[in-house]
Design a protein around this nucleic acid. Structure first.
Lengths: 140, 140
DNA sequence: CCTTGATCCTCTAGTGGCTAGAGGTCCTAG
DNA sequence: CTAGGACCTCTAGCCACTAGAGGATCAAGG
């Protein structure tokens, strides 16, 4: 277990530049180096990076992950804060889903009403322009 | 109709720096200036900017909007391309909704299973760590 | 021991779509 | 003529990476 960065990358599915980036912003600690200045990682880093990857996949922001990692490091503490981060995130996801669904509705209507004729009669352009006429190039 | 940028901003709901930004990236043409070098806008710009704002609200990317604007400027052309842009966007929206919903499911399960006890027993942290034990701070 | 080529290093800059701030000029009402 | 609000340009920052230049190191084969 003395993995170079490429191997850590393969085991976690996190790209090499991203790993270095995580180190730079302090999500990962600086690992020990070889004499030739190359990073070498152990098992704890594999786990920590998997934790980060999974959290990112679930859409948590880096700042949230920072807190979640701290919590994970003190197993005897209350998990109230973790719960709160997760719930806030859930609310945000719900908000995004709602907004995307509304948007989907408007887009669907737009596309369905398009008569596939000239731009001038196109509902898509019309809806975007938000008024009853074609938008004409303005000669000012 | 010889509006300063602040008035254009008020009428379209697009912030002043954003208008200047749109000009910089070529979404809006450079308007005429006063002797004192201040921008003055007319009605066509109000319409064009409303078109842009509405498109952004619907989640279209700037490159898409660039094309849509070009189309809107040639009203006799076929609207096939507009239709295609809108359909692609709709597909992308569907993809995002699906992905967020899946994520919502996992998050909900996580939050519901949290026993509100110690981190060590917390499903949230456990799921994120993706294995059966608490993640412990690695002393290397 | 030496070469080869894959992997590693650091550093800078770019992505998208803005937003913020510094430091200065202009416009207009009183 | 002055005050202060609105305007100007320019640079830098946001998020979470990604790309690329230009060079060093490592491990395996000859």
């Amino acid at each position: 277990m003395n993995l170079p960065i490429g191997e850590l990358s393969r085991r976690t599915g996190v790209k090499v530049p991203t790993i270095r980036f995580y180190e730079q912003i302090g999500l990962l600690q600086s690992p020990p180096r070889t004499e030739g200045n190359q990073r070498r990682y152990g098992k704890p880093e594999v786990e920590r990076l998997n934790f980060i990857r999974h959290s990112r996949e679930l859409g948590f922001e880096v700042e949230d992950i920072r807190e979640l990692l701290e919590m994970a490091a003190s197993p005897q503490a209350s998990c109230h804060q973790a719960d709160s981060i997760a719930r806030n995130h859930l609310t945000e996801i719900d908000r995004r889903i709602a907004s995307l669904s509304a948007l989907r509705g408007e887009l669907t209507r737009m596309v369905e009403e398009c008569g596939h004729g000239r731009i001038c009669d196109c509902r898509i352009i019309e809806v975007l322009a938000d008024h009853g006429e074609c938008v004409t190039e303005h000669a000012h």
